[in-house]
């Protein structure tokens, strides 16, 4: 019994040394690469179709946020100096397969933490959450997932802000997101959000006629945060989709290259096997004469 086992092992190892036995292996590998190419191609097409919608959402969110930014510019609102309660909100999504987009965000988060060592972190999307847990697990105060599957909506942003305000007030809020610069590049950026106190302290606030008994500045601060998160999500989503399209495009190209290489190898090996078999047959036949 043992001897048979040992024999089998010996046979397997000798079969590996021989070249023809790999024909099967090459065929299987070729098949799996073809399947992978199908998947990456489909993912690329899906990403391409979503990109248009994502870009449209991003453009309108930029316009929507602009009125806030105009106001802060004219009121000359400034971030408080030397504040200690800082919240960093990092926006990515739950899904990978889109190039370096999540790891770039992870880098940006780490460099921002270096800037504000006492900061708390809220992560939107599982990918940043995992990265923050690895490097600064003690600073993570809140994490959201399930966003970024579809084009982000204002409603999602509002729900996130509803949860974020439960953390209490922060002097300084920094939103980190991947800014969409072009269809081939993105830029991890930071947007600083003004708190209610910062708006009240703006030097040129008197330019505006504001009825404060309605709590206008409070609502304004809340809306500005929601807007920044919404705009960040929209930008991040557009960057992610376009990064995924590029990543999948490259993957399909590489798969195509490998398919070519392996088809040639497969054909050559097959030919070699046939030639060898012919040689065997002819030698056998001629030895009978």
């Amino acid at each position: 019994m043992y001897r048979i086992g040992a024999q089998q092992i010996a046979r397997v190892s000798s079969a590996k040394a021989r070249n023809y036995a790999t024909l099967r292996e090459i065929e299987m590998r070729l098949k799996s690469i073809k399947n992978i190419e199908k998947i990456t191609k489909t993912m690329k097409i899906v990403a391409s179709t979503r990109l248009g919608k994502a870009q449209k959402a991003m453009t309108s969110s930029r316009v929507y946020q602009e009125s806030d930014l105009d106001f802060f510019k004219i009121a000359e609102t400034q971030l408080p100096e030397g504040s200690d309660r800082t919240l960093i909100i990092a926006i990515t999504s739950d899904k990978g397969l889109c190039g370096s987009i999540h790891s770039q965000m992870g880098k940006k988060v780490r460099s921002t933490i270096a800037e504000y060592p006492n900061a708390d972190i809220a992560a939107i999307g599982d990918k940043t959450k995992v990265q923050v847990l690895r490097s600064n697990a003690d600073k993570l105060v809140m994490a959201f997932n399930g966003v970024g599957k579809e084009t982000p909506s204002f409603n999602e942003a509002s729900l996130i802000v509803d949860e974020l305000v439960k953390l209490g007030t922060y002097d300084k809020v920094v939103v980190l997101y991947n800014k969409f610069t072009s269809s081939v590049s993105f830029d991890p950026s930071a947007a600083e959000i003004y708190s209610e106190a910062a708006i009240d302290a703006s030097s040129k606030l008197a330019v505006f006629d504001i009825e404060d008994d309605n709590g206008t500045t409070e609502t304004l601060a809340r809306i500005a945060l929601t807007n920044a998160i919404f705009a960040g999500m929209a930008e991040g989503y557009a960057s992610e989709i376009s990064a995924r399209r590029n990543a999948m495009d490259n993957a399909s190209k590489n798969a195509g290259d490998m398919i070519n290489k392996y088809s040639i190898l497969y054909n050559r090996t097959r030919q070699a096997v046939i030639t060898n078999e012919l040689v065997d047959i002819i030698t056998g036949a001629s030895s009978l004469d």
Partner: peptide, 9 residues
């Protein structure tokens, strides 16, 4: 006038 919504302008 600029009149905008989060998802549309």
């Amino acid at each position: 006038l600029s009149f905008s919504m989060p998802h549309d302008t």
